[in-house]
Amino acid sequence: MTAAPLTGVVPPVCTPLTPDREVDTGSLVRLVDHLVGAGVDGLFVLGSTSEAAYLPDRQRRTVVDTVVAHVAGQLPVLAGAIDMTTPRVRDHVAAVTAAGADAVVVTAPFYTRTHPAEIATHFRTLAAASPAPVFAYDLPVSVHTKLPGELLLDLAADGVLAGVKDSSGDEAAFRALLLAARARTDVTGFSVLTGAELTVDAALAAGADGVVPGLGNVDPHGYVRLHRACRAGDFERARVEQERLCALFRMTGVGDPARMGGSSSALGAFKAALHLRGVIDCPATAVPQVPLSPAEIAEVGKHLATAGLL
């Protein structure tokens, strides 16, 4: 992972839970098999789609231990080491790398406002402490800081960062990062991955190395087909696949906004879909997220049927 960019489809793996909100390791293994069998290129555990922010440390460790052991080196496993401050993140880095994660994924510090100089120190400190490559996670909706492209590339040039997962939704900034990375002769092996699952065809056409799609839990085959079509230069086939996935993504809006937030709706829909497809045993999401109603789950089923997944 340090010699060449990480490329392809790297789903952020959902964390199946039991009805009493413990990690369902049996369902997690089936989900991993579902993803690996579709031909994905890597797995990202303990990110936003994994509900990492809701999981206590013991459950985070269970997730990493289970996935790393089951994958057994078939493909890289990236693990989120996400917390508010550098010392706390450093502890998570130590835990996930001890469990065998091939790389760690880290946001900027949050809770307090941070200056770019502090963000740089954060990443440099973590890279110095990590035996595995460090990927930046650009997630301003949660962290309240947009990672500057120039800062990312400077850190990459110094060997601090192996790549970035850009979930900012700022397509202009994403394109600018790709252009700047291409122009920098001192940056090599730096992976630029998009988390914008509805515009993957455009991102890959612009030069992105890969995609980290939450919807890829539900339909990994679709994202693998999309990626392969783009790599083959068949952008018409890619467009058709992308538009099918855009239609499927509408399932994330089935939750009634009068009683739940967007995260409850989206993660609830992903898990309901996996349950309906027979991949996981229970669609429970972590507290305090609001569960989907039976009628909303039925709507998820309709989206799956329309997409040819039921």
Rank of each mutant, 00 (worst) to 15 (best):
F190T: 11
A98N: 02
V93Q: 01
G214T: 04
K165L: 13
D65P: 03
L215C: 00
P133T: 08
A307L: 07
A266K: 04
T86E: 07
D138F: 03
A173K: 00
A128M: 02
V164A: 01
V254S: 05
L179C: 01
V96T: 11
T2Y: 05
T121C: 05
H70N: 00
G255D: 12
P213G: 09
H144V: 04
V200D: 03
A180L: 14
T145R: 08
V29I: 12
L274K: 06
D170P: 05
T107G: 04
H122R: 08
S27I: 09
I82K: 02
G214R: 05
L248D: 08
V23G: 07
V200W: 05
E236W: 06
T194V: 12
A81G: 02
F270Y: 13
A181T: 13
C14V: 13
V29T: 09
E51Y: 02
A273S: 10
L248N: 13
R30M: 08
G210I: 09
T199Y: 13
V300H: 03
A203M: 15
R244K: 15
L46W: 01
V96F: 06
M260R: 14
A205T: 08
D83F: 08
P133A: 11
R259S: 14
A180P: 00
A136Y: 01
A232T: 00
S293C: 02
I82N: 13
G195A: 15
V106A: 10
V279R: 10
G47P: 03
A132I: 15
V104F: 06
D24A: 02
V187W: 14
T15A: 05
T306I: 07
H221I: 10
P283Y: 10
L147R: 09
P87V: 12
R259H: 10
L309V: 11
A172R: 15
A247Y: 04
C282L: 03
H122S: 03
G47H: 04
L177M: 14
A99M: 08
G222E: 12
S265G: 07
T114D: 00
L204Q: 13
T185F: 05
P109Y: 07
P19K: 02
G37Q: 01
H227E: 10
A98F: 01
A99K: 10
D24G: 06
P257L: 06
A79L: 10
F44S: 07
G169Y: 14
Q74M: 04
R237E: 11
T86M: 05
P16C: 06
D91A: 15
L147I: 07
G207Q: 01
G159Q: 11
A183F: 08
T62H: 03
A162P: 06
I119Q: 14
E118N: 11
A120C: 04
V13H: 12
R259P: 00
V212E: 12
A132E: 12
M260Y: 02
P16M: 03
R231A: 14
I82M: 14
R182L: 15
R88D: 10
R225N: 13
H227A: 13
G163T: 02
G47K: 11
V254H: 01
P131H: 08
L177N: 02
G233L: 05
K165T: 03
V71I: 05
A128D: 13
M1R: 07
D281G: 15
A173W: 00
R175I: 08
K302G: 12
T306H: 12
P148M: 06
A203W: 15
G308C: 08
P87W: 03
G255V: 10
P87R: 11
A101S: 07
L28A: 12
G189I: 03
R182Q: 15
M251R: 09
